[in-house]
Simulated scan of single mutants.
Amino acid sequence: MEPPSGSPDLVLAFANTHADGGGRPERFADVDGLRAWLRENGLDEAADDASPADVDGVRHLRDAVVTVLLGHSHDPATDDATVAAAEDDVRRVAARHPLVTSVDRDGARLAPAQPGLPGALGLVLAAMTELALTGSWSRVKACRNPPCHFAFLDRSRNTSGAYCSTACSSQVAMRAYRRRKAGSHD
């Protein structure tokens, strides 16, 4: 397994495996879906190691990561206690999937200490850690549009991005407009 490079790609790919209101299917619905995702991301050894018993734990970690990313987006529907509980879940998983430091003349990287599926989850955790160490972790967010919650990298200058696309931003604005409009007729 290759250690992460400080890129958000693996974290985004992992977080964006959930179903949404737009027709995106749940990628971790069963072991076949988990194995397919692992292979798509170059984690063949982990795919061979994955079992049906692993699916719930992987999905739980993914959901915790998405909740943390909603915290980065300041989602009004996600309170501080929910984000703190998700952070605790991530810490518990991280304790079971240790990382080691790999130092060479090009720098230092974090790598999983375990092979197989634990190593693949370690890679996701290493990528999250490296993003935090580079100051980029807070730019990895989840869309505040409730049916979407798609993870994205906020490239705005002032890190104020809250939606993955203008389409999601427009949906939220239209729902707010309709609520206001319906409330003015009472």
Rank of each mutant, 00 (worst) to 15 (best):
E2K: 08
P4R: 03
P4T: 03
S5P: 07
G6Q: 12
G6K: 09
S7K: 12
P8C: 14
P8V: 12
D9Y: 05
A13Q: 12
A13F: 09
A13I: 12
F14K: 01
F14C: 08
T17P: 00
A19L: 10
A19F: 05
D20M: 14
G21M: 14
G23S: 11
R24W: 11
R24H: 14
F28E: 07
L34I: 06
W37I: 02
D48K: 05
D49P: 02
P52Q: 09
A53K: 10
A53Q: 13
V55W: 04
V55G: 07
G57Q: 00
D63R: 14
A64H: 00
A64V: 03
V65I: 14
V68E: 12
H72Q: 12
H72K: 11
S73F: 07
A77E: 14
A81E: 14
A84Q: 09
A86R: 01
D88M: 01
D88I: 02
D89P: 01
V90M: 04
R92M: 01
L99M: 12
L99K: 01
L99A: 08
D104Y: 06
L110E: 04
P112M: 05
P112A: 01
A113K: 00
P115Q: 11
G116H: 08
G119V: 00
V124Q: 02
L125K: 03
M128C: 06
S136E: 15
V140P: 02
V140H: 10
V140L: 11
A142Y: 02
N145V: 06
N145Y: 14
P146I: 04
C148R: 09
F150E: 10
A151R: 05
L153G: 08
D154N: 15
D154Q: 14
D154Y: 09
R155M: 07
S156C: 13
R157M: 11
T159P: 00
Y163R: 05
C164R: 01
A173K: 15
A173D: 10
M174W: 11
Y177D: 05
Y177W: 15
R178V: 13
R179M: 13
R180K: 15
K181T: 07
D186W: 06
